[in-house]
Amino acid sequence: MRDRFANPYTIHEIMKGFKVLMFILCSTGVFAQEDVYHGTKETIPKIPPKDEKIRTVIVSDAKNEIDDVWAIALAILSPEKFQIEGFVGSNYDHVFGVGSKSISGSVSVIETILDKAGLKGKYPVYRGSHPMQYQFEPSHSEGVDFIIEKAMEGSGENPLWVIGLGSATDLASAYLKEPKIADRVIFFWHGRTENTWPYRAHNYNVKGDMHAARILFHSPVPLVLFDTGTNLSAGTMEESKEHVEPFGELGKYLYEYRFKSEYWQGTKKGFFDLGDIAVLVDPELGKWEETICPTVTTYMDYNFYKTNGKFLRCRKVQRDGTFQMLYSKLREHQAARE
């Protein structure tokens, strides 16, 4: 017979129970992430109809990848859809360690695209921020201040669409620096996790600034997650030579940009960010769903135990319709200039 005061459980049983408790606490976010949130997302964005124009600032790590270059071209060729307030060149980094030079590189490429399109000086282009150093401290830059300025000129009825094609630094920092923009902006962010949804927030743009990426999910700012684009191959070089290269300096620039990388010349390279712009110009090119907004752990796992309202997710984009849109607009642009 056991002593009434003796521990009725073995060490093995105690440790097993402790492990279960720790799993529950971590899964629900008690230890996996801080219980510091800025407010529940109460507005689920609605993508404006095809014939409705939107105010926008485009934030892009344009020097980093060819898809940004082609995406920006499509945006500036779509004045019927976008009232572009300006651009922000954002940070990026990779195995070659571009680091602090990335921001000026992005600005330079954006300015070159505008020049090739005959739009030099039409839109302001600002330098964005370096990645956030601390979880809730904004990273300051002229680009962040510009986003805030343009957001505060809007309203809930006429919000500023901040299209983020790169790291989330400038979007998150704008909110952290001026939380009042929350009901005056919509963040449309390329956070492509189609291969890991709904388990992990794992993509290049998250890698660029994990603190900032988490803020997009944890803040009350209305969010559209562009979660697709792997299928957006530009096709063969012959296709680009026929439909892109002949149409002015911009077309030639886009075509020749593919020669910067052997991989970009192949048919397996996704022109991911082109899809972000295409589905805003014509929402029927995308497949959309309203979904619960997870929080994101410090390990970049989606956490559906502790959620934050809902957001809009684009989960699929048509390849042919996207590229045909670009081809058509390149032809129209060149015809208008002749």
Rank of each mutant, 00 (worst) to 15 (best):
D282M: 02
P79R: 08
R2L: 12
H211F: 14
P220R: 03
V88P: 00
L114N: 05
G251Q: 03
E289H: 09
V36K: 15
N231S: 11
S141F: 03
S108R: 14
L25P: 00
L250K: 00
I66M: 10
R2H: 07
F271D: 00
S90T: 15
K329H: 13
V162K: 05
L171F: 15
L171A: 13
S233M: 04
G229C: 03
Y305F: 14
T295V: 05
F96T: 14
G97N: 11
L21F: 11
V279M: 08
L250R: 01
S219F: 01
K53G: 08
G143W: 10
K63D: 12
A234M: 09
Q33H: 10
G89L: 02
Y92T: 02
V244E: 03
G266W: 00
Q133H: 04
V109K: 11
W197F: 15
K63C: 04
D93G: 07
L225E: 11
A213W: 04
E338A: 11
F311Y: 11
V107Y: 04
G229V: 03
T193A: 12
I113S: 10
W264C: 02
E245M: 08
G86Y: 05
F96Q: 10
K329W: 07
A335D: 14
G266Q: 06
S261W: 02
E332L: 12
K53R: 15
G105I: 04
I58T: 04
S240P: 00
W70V: 02
N7R: 13
G154S: 13
G164C: 15
T228V: 12
S129G: 10
I14L: 09
K116S: 06
M325A: 03
K19I: 06
E42W: 05
D93R: 03
R2F: 13
E290S: 10
T10N: 10
I24H: 08
G29F: 11
F217E: 09
V95I: 11
L176R: 05
K116C: 09
F82G: 08
D67L: 01
V30I: 12
H333E: 13
F188R: 00
V221H: 02
I186D: 04
C293S: 15
N203T: 12
F136H: 15
L74Y: 06
E242V: 11
K269P: 00
E338G: 08
Y299R: 13
G29E: 05
N308A: 08
G89Q: 06
L254A: 07
K81E: 02
E153Y: 01
Y92S: 01
R2T: 05
K53E: 12
G266L: 00
V221D: 02
E149A: 10
A212T: 06
F87H: 02
F18Q: 14
E157I: 10
S90G: 14
E137Y: 07
